[in-house]
């Protein structure tokens, strides 16, 4: 029980650091935006817990979730990596509905 609790606390604390995650944002823009649209709206469509559940449901959850969608698999299949997946989830968790994060203005693409 303790390890699970520790992992949950670790993920929760890390997720606050994820808020604007440029690498994750890049992955989203390149691989996901064509179907799912605006990145911040997508991230806000679920709570942190939901994204975390999704992240741990298998070793390659994104590919599994899209396995019946030919267009998505063609797009993702050959160049989808664990690193991309990790970055994408950092972005999604960091900007989830209950993250409390201010959608990322880092000065590189928007301002206050």
């Amino acid at each position: 029980m303790k390890p699970i609790l520790a992992i949950t606390i670790l993920i929760s604390s890390l997720s606050t650091l994820y808020a604007y995650h440029p690498e994750g944002m890049k992955v989203y823009k390149k691989e996901c935006m064509i179907c799912h649209g605006s990145p911040f709206r997508m991230a806000e469509s679920r709570k942190q817990y939901d994204w975390e559940q999704m992240m741990f449901q298998s070793s390659r959850p994104i590919l599994d979730l899209h396995k019946n969608e030919k267009e998505a698999i063609e797009r993702l299949g050959s160049n989808w990596t664990d690193k991309k997946q990790e970055n994408l989830f950092k972005f999604l968790i960091g900007n989830a509905k209950d993250s409390g994060a201010v959608p990322g203005c880092d000065g590189n693409y928007c301002g206050p």
Binding site: K29, S38, P39, F40, R41, P103, G104, C105, Y109, C110
Partner: peptide, 8 residues
Amino acid sequence: IDYTLGYY
């Protein structure tokens, strides 16, 4: 319906 933030 949707919103965006920043430059695209």
